[in-house]
């Protein structure tokens, strides 16, 4: 009993620890600029959220909304397509025997160790050769790659897609591609959600790539846009409230993605553990 109370206390403390910054952000975003520096940081002053939101979406012809849309396209699009690619690749590595299979897998696995940050500059130089920097594709294409997803997909495909089922499908005359999309993906679904979420977060947080690639404000993801504003606060202090409110709005898609997908994720992790 005693240990349970202690555990709850620790859990409570860590919950508090993680939630306080978000609470601070929320409270901060509801204040006017004057109140923000002069009133208590963790409690409300005059409720100004509506006003702040209005300023945020109308500043510079609504460039913030454009950034949100970009972020969703970059992350959502890349995560969706990247998950399909990773699933196909992992599945092929798990289910087909061919020469060099282990070599390819090991190379992919090595890719997990290379941080995305280290690749940003070489990618910039490559895209420069192609005259393709400062375009949507310069951020989108590199974001499709997800070696960790391939690894997960292979492990999961080995564990959850029975050989016999594939044999049966072949005997019934289903082509390999059809078998993959109609049968295997269904079996791998929980793993795919996990891969999707990991990929989504990774692309969302990959800040350096757009920072290096993009110069056109209209192509920025929301992270880069808010960061740029934040560096201009000294010059244009009214941006401070926009940065705060923008930061609050920008975490909503992440929260939504997690809330919507967490039940799949949990079942994915759980069933993987049992096998």
């Amino acid at each position: 009993m005693k240990s349970k109370t202690a555990a709850m206390a620790i859990m409570g403390l860590s919950t508090l620890y993680f939630l306080v910054p978000i609470w601070w952000l929320f409270v901060g975003a509801t204040k006017s600029r004057g109140d923000f520096s002069s009133t208590a940081p963790l409690w409300f002053a005059d409720f100004n959220l509506g006003q702040n939101l209005h300023e945020l979406v109308s500043y510079r012809d609504g460039v913030f909304l454009r950034w949100m849309l970009n972020s969703i396209l970059y992350t959502g699009g890349a995560a969706l397509l990247g998950t399909v690619l990773a699933a196909m690749c992992g599945y092929a590595l798990a289910k087909y025997r061919f020469r060099g299979r282990e070599l390819i897998f090991n190379i992919v696995l090595g890719g997990v160790l290379v941080p995305a940050t280290a690749l940003a500059l070489p990618l910039f130089l490559i895209f420069s050769q192609l005259n393709a920097t400062n375009t949507f594709w310069s951020v989108f294409l590199p974001s499709l790659v997800n070696p960790f997803g391939v690894y997960l997909a292979r492990i999961y495909a080995t564990a959850s897609v029975p050989e016999e089922l594939l044999e049966a499908a072949r005997l019934d005359g289903s082509g390999e591609v059809r078998t993959f999309f109609k049968i295997s993906t269904k079996l791998m679904f929980p793993a795919l959600v996990t891969i999707f979420l990991f990929h989504f977060v990774a692309v969302w947080n990959n800040f350096l790539l757009p920072l290096i690639m993009l110069g056109n404000e209209r192509l920025f993801p929301v992270t880069l846009g808010l960061y740029s504003w934040n560096t201009q606060v000294n010059q244009l202090p009214e941006l401070r409230m926009l940065v705060l409110t923008g930061a609050l709005v920008s975490i909503l898609p992440l929260v939504a993605a997690f809330l919507l997908l967490q039940r799949f994720w949990r079942s994915g992790l759980g069933s993987g553990a049992v096998k």
Partner: peptide, 22 residues
């Protein structure tokens, strides 16, 4: 073209771009 302030990343971008010739 725009971005964060100089020390916030734009100077580094300039150096990269000079290297890449764009």
């Amino acid at each position: 073209q725009t971005g964060p302030n100089g020390n916030g990343g734009t100077y580094q971008n300039f150096f990269n771009q000079l290297k890449a010739g764009n």
